[in-house]
Amino acid sequence: MKELIGTGVALITPFTEDYKVDTEALTRVVNFNIENGIDYLVVLGTTAESVTLSKSEKQLVIDTIIAANNSRIPLVLGIGGNDTRAVINEMQERDLTHFAAVLSVSPMYNKPTQEGIYQHFAAIAQMAPKPIILYNVPGRTASNMLPETVIRLANDFESIVAIKEAAGDIVQAMRLISGCPKDFLVISGDDMVTLPMVLAGGAGVISVIGEVFPKEFSQMVRLGLDKKAVEAYKIHYKIAPAIDYIFAEGNPAGVKAVFNALGICGPTVRLPLVGVSENLKAKIDSFVASF
């Protein structure tokens, strides 16, 4: 899965002011990222507000991104949830022709044991028509997929090829990198620790900040993969304040505020999310203007 090495971005779903999917803005977002060096695109992840999209809206988002991408770079589709049967059914029902892999989040809300997490992904792995990227994000799921569980899955199922590790714990990340099979990809899911993870042997990132500063962030990751730490950290510290800003009042409200400042799409999010405060908007606007 060499196509998953480098910088992937978790695409937003732009909305019009009346909360409809803004396909023109989504096309601009896709082109902006491809033209500025992003290696692959992740469709219908958390940042896409996928839990607020209807079935027909999800298909509209998928179709729009496929058309805009025009086979230029690989695509990854987010299909996950806390009902194992429903996840398997969606994977089998969707047309995955245009996708290199599926990103599947660890079950949220149920708070399964480590054995439950293992059995969830074991069932998916045996039925999935595409390679699987595990997604560990304890801040959203309320459970941490431990390295022992990931290593077990990586060794037991060839179809499980990578993990998006978003615990924000560099020690846990290093345990994954050292313990998983050599060809298994440990991908950062936390923008602030992406560079340390890459320098430690990680395969890259699935980023949020990367979609608004794609040229700079993807260059940082390339330098990290080449072990050029000094040059890479110069970019990291330049972007770091914006990473704090975009998550200060929740994702994707923050990153949409950056896109708004860039003039690429509006800031609208769907309830229960709300847009950023005027104070944070002023900080974001100022950062973008001076970047």
Rank of each mutant, 00 (worst) to 15 (best):
I132T: 08
P131S: 10
G210L: 02
A203C: 10
G168P: 06
V198T: 10
M108T: 14
V186Y: 04
I124E: 06
P181D: 11
G116D: 09
V161G: 10
E115A: 13
R152Y: 03
I151P: 00
M174K: 14
D191K: 04
A162M: 10
P196Q: 11
T149W: 06
V193S: 09
I160F: 06
P112W: 06
N110E: 14
I206Q: 00
G204D: 03
I124L: 09
A154M: 02
V161E: 06
V137G: 07
A142R: 10
G139P: 05
A162V: 10
K130H: 08
F217D: 00
T113D: 06
L195G: 05
Q126S: 14
L153S: 04
S218K: 02
L176A: 11
F213V: 12
I170Q: 07
F213N: 01
Q114H: 06
F184Y: 04
A123N: 13
K130V: 14
V186G: 03
A154Y: 04
M192L: 11
I151Y: 03
F213D: 01
P112T: 14
G139D: 08
T149V: 13
M127V: 12
S188R: 05
L153H: 09
L134R: 06
S159K: 15
C180G: 01
G179F: 04
E165L: 09
F217N: 03
N136K: 12
E211T: 02
F184E: 04
G168W: 02
S104N: 12
V137Y: 01
V198D: 03
L185Y: 08
K111Q: 15
L176N: 11
K215D: 10
V105D: 05
Y135H: 10
V212F: 00
D191G: 04
D156W: 00
T149P: 01
D191W: 00
V198M: 05
D183M: 11
A154C: 09
G189C: 08
P138C: 12
G202E: 00
Y118P: 05
G139T: 13
A162G: 07
V137M: 03
Q119E: 15
I160D: 06
Q219Y: 03
V137R: 01
A128L: 11
D156T: 06
N144I: 11
N110C: 15
F184A: 03
S188T: 04
S159F: 07
S106C: 14
I163W: 01
V212M: 02
S207D: 08
G189P: 09
F157H: 12
N155Q: 13
C180F: 00
Y109E: 13
E158P: 12
G116M: 06
T113A: 08
C180V: 13
V171G: 05
G210T: 07
A173T: 14
G116C: 07
Q219P: 05
K215A: 10
P129C: 14
G201P: 01
I117Y: 03
V212P: 00
K182G: 02
D183F: 06
A123F: 03
V198E: 01
V105L: 13
S104H: 10
I209Q: 00
A122E: 09
A122C: 04
A162D: 08
G189Q: 08
L176I: 12
F157E: 12
S143C: 15
S207M: 02
R140W: 12
E211V: 02
P131F: 09
S104L: 07
